[in-house]
Write a protein that binds this DNA or RNA. Structure first.
Lengths: 145, 145
DNA sequence: GCCTTATGATTAGCGGCCTAATAATAAGCC
DNA sequence: GGCTTATTATTAGGCCGCTAATCATAAGGC
């Protein structure tokens, strides 16, 4: 690889890193029958106090409606979530975790924080915070575009 | 686990950021008939001194063989690259840019570095470098897993 | 030379992201 | 009430990443 470092590199590294991060988490979640994408959905549901509608959940997770719909299809097939009718609005559905999913939450939180710990080893807290700040700034700039 | 900011956040932000970055670049490249994925391939070809084989190119770009093969299919259909037979190894193909692609390279480099500039506004050089270093450390940790 | 193993590219098929289009319902306005 | 517009969820279809399997060729051991 040529050692010259054009500004382009930041985006490439970011993309590669996100892909690798996802792949590793997928690997660690596989034995639970989960993937990163489905796991994130479960985690968000568990953290929202009131059962959210799909619209609200998609917003919280940060994906579009159709993407969430298909993730919920598989999670529902796996028996981890249920779609509940909303009496006041017959278009909407509220999403809740099933009893089967509840014990999973602790496991997946443990797995993901273990992985986080593994991956940030050798990075000091200050650097990490600064990196987070950079990420947030870029995201803010992106939302302005 | 810190009670208020679970470590999970870093991965989620990373994922969201990479997706948003890609989406914005796709938007800016659309009028050239390109996407981020295909653009990166062109850029790598143009930077490798000798025409690379697909294997080498895939390595350089950081994707698997089949992923590259399909990107090359579309780039070839668009007339931006050609696959050349290699006399010494009849399994392999070397990838070269066409004359049509050459003038594009400057444009796409300009677009991507403009975007880079737009997105890092408000971040000072030191923070950015530190962030890059964090990314590289995490990637190194990932490759050890 | 011949057989086994390794390698380069492709195909098939899946996951996860998107946008556009659709269907059902709700809300707002005469 | 009845029409128009907005909103919720879904379906359809595309892109881009992956792994597994396939095909042709190369390389190595005998």
């Amino acid at each position: 690889m040529p050692p010259e470092a054009p500004p382009v590199r930041f985006g490439m590294l970011l993309t590669l890193l996100a892909r690798s991060w996802r792949a590793e988490l997928d690997r660690r979640l596989a034995h639970l029958g989960l993937s990163q994408a489905r796991w994130v959905v479960l985690l968000h549901i568990s953290r929202i106090p009131e059962a959210p509608t799909q619209r609200e959940l998609a917003q919280s997770v940060g994906v579009e409606g159709p993407t969430l719909a298909r993730l919920l299809d598989s999670l529902e097939n796996q028996g981890f979530v249920k779609r509940l009718m909303v009496p006041e609005d017959r278009r909407a559905k509220k999403i809740v975790l099933t009893d089967k999913a509840e014990p999973l939450i602790r496991q997946i939180e443990a797995i993901s924080s273990q992985m986080h710990q593994d991956l940030i080893s050798g990075i000091d807290e200050e650097e990490l915070q600064s990196c987070l700040k950079v990420h947030q700034t870029i995201l803010k700039n992106l939302n302005r575009s």
